[in-house]
Design a protein around this nucleic acid. Structure first.
Lengths: 191, 191
DNA sequence: GATTTTATTGTACATCTGTCTAATAAAAAT
DNA sequence: ATTTTTATTAGACAGATGTACAATAAAATC
């Protein structure tokens, strides 16, 4: 049996309508009723597919999350996982955010559920876990690796939060250099 | 002119009702109507004071945020701002979170607006900014201090996220040691 | 204590939410 | 091409939301 065409049509219709509405109003003000009217979908049908408007929005995030993953990976491959050899132009994560800036503005919005933040967190974290394992785990046995990884992961996201709040005014090149500088002097607590 | 007693009574009534409801159901499932019924407040009156249920909840956070601030400060004063002299038992932030665990479980819940997270972020960040200024700002002039601070601040919060997701199972003492260990080896990128 | 100010109430309204049902239409399976 | 399966629709329901207004009650002010 194959995927029912009606389902695809309905979901695409809703996603398209959402994108259209997002051009003129914030996500949190978009109602299910409004979305369905624009998509010409019966409101009852909506609930057969999604629980709320966020459900539709999450569809778009799949693409972004995959691109984030690829962008975050980049310097690891470029340096052959010897990350101390990193150079500013190997960093791709800020390009990625800039590319999807409109979405990141939504994701980091005060009203958004923290789920979206966790989605970014988990994406970066899962890759960091794979790589850090190889370097640290055996040498630093007194550290619970999961805490170290969450610490490191969230530190990176801290830069994205700062960039967002600052209105994405800092250039990508500048940020790349900043990141290099920060991770090289890090931490301020070091002896 | 003094603060109107009726206003105080109304707000206290709503806050009390919220706390009562939180014992049996999650915040996101509590409606304004339900809250008002329990508080014996006319629903129209609610809107004279708050926009939504979160508005009532935020009242409680003021206390928590102040305590967080004090707890985060502690080791700075204990070490006389020479933070490399920190010892595990000087750290008070995990005590703080444990103390308000019930609230932190709500704050870090997936459905919660990221506003609450930003509130924690800003609390820690503002203090970190005051202190880091003194140490770093002059020595590391190629670094935009705001990015460094957001990086560091969010790293700390990363540990709280990890603790939350792990169900607050790790003991406070263990976490104190972990934090010391992490900030001493940090970063994995160091040369 | 009388007067003035204002917070609260009761009521109403249009809209949204989440759920359910029987009827219909559109797809898949044969 | 016909049958079977199932997604969608229309309609209805109780409850929630956000706003508005005149009436009332409870404070503050004098």
């Amino acid at each position: 049996m194959k995927q029912d065409l009606r389902i695809i049509k309905t979901q695409e219709s809703l996603r398209h309508a959402l994108l259209s509405l997002l051009k003129s109003k914030p996500l949190e003000s978009i109602t299910i009723a409004e979305l369905c009217r624009l998509a010409k979908i019966n409101r009852g049908t909506f609930y057969l597919h999604y629980r709320d408007v966020h459900g539709v929005f999450k569809h778009y995030l799949e693409v972004i999350v995959e691109d984030l993953r690829q962008s975050y990976k980049e310097p690891y491959y470029k340096t052959n996982f010897i990350i101390k050899n990193i150079e500013a132009d190997m960093i791709k994560i800020f390009h990625h955010v800039k590319k999807y800036q409109d979405f990141y503005k939504i994701i980091f919005d005060e009203k958004m559920p923290i789920t979206y933040y966790y989605l970014l967190f988990d994406t970066v974290r899962s890759f960091m876990k794979e790589t850090v394992n190889k370097e640290i785990q055996e040498t630093e046995s007194d550290i619970k690796i999961d805490y170290l990884i969450s610490y490191q992961t969230n530190a990176i996201l801290g830069i994205l939060i700062e960039w967002h709040r600052e209105g994405y005014r800092t250039s990508i090149d500048e940020l790349n250099q900043q990141l290099i500088a920060i991770i090289s002097i890090n931490s301020p607590f070091k002896k």
